[in-house]
Nucleic acid binder design. Structure first.
Lengths: 105, 105
DNA sequence: TTATAATATGAATATATGATCATATTAAAT
DNA sequence: ATTTAATATGATCATATATTCATATTATAA
């Protein structure tokens, strides 16, 4: 197959491109990776995340909103406290695997 | 395990965090995704990529440099032409799977 | 050795992003 | 009803990023 032209190639549709790029964008920031990695351990409140990772509360809140929009995390309320946890197995597996891969290379 | 504290949690080391975030950053841009996706089909020259995806040559060149630095693509020279192809199975698999996942949800 | 084709590079710029501050909202306790 | 604790939001700012233009480099052909 020499001289590949536009006609010979099935391009990615706009929507898939958007979803995929957004998904990886979520995983491309150290702060969000740290938050998601912490949530591997267990469900956490915003304050717990802040303390554990030494991040400002508003920073954590903003990042969680981002992750929530992409449905990578879910939450439940208990009084004044809101507990966050993972909500996308595929993305979580991807992150786990890539962390493992990075550590062993 | 209630009240998770700093002491109870094994944080990600700086280097892993950097490698992982950089890897996902590479996959977070639509243009780079399109280039990598095109390279699924076959090895391509810079000009082929430009034509096929309707991108400026310099843009393609810049993105390829980025991908090259992260060793996600490799290249070989043939006269004036330089052919690019994939160079990281793990990352390629990750991208393939995530595209597939995005298409079927 | 000059011209041409393919690719790379650097500067400039517009936009996106992450972090922070101040403040708003929500729920519970006094 | 106030106060306090937990979380969310909006504005701002500094930095990062993607794209483009113009030009440089590299290799072949005439």
């Amino acid at each position: 197959m020499k001289n590949l032209k536009k006609e010979d190639y099935q391009p990615l549709d706009e929507e898939t491109l958007f979803v995929v790029s957004q998904t990886f964008k979520a995983l491309s920031d150290p702060t969000r990776i740290r938050i998601l990695h912490l949530l591997f351990e267990k469900e956490c409140s915003v304050t717990e995340i802040s303390n554990c990772l030494e991040l400002k509360q508003s920073n954590v809140s903003h990042q969680l909103r981002f992750l929530k929009q992409l449905r990578l995390v879910k939450y439940r309320r208990e009084g004044k406290t809101i507990y966050y946890s993972h909500d996308d197995e595929h993305v979580i597996n991807t992150l786990q695997q890539t962390i493992h891969h990075a550590k062993h290379h």
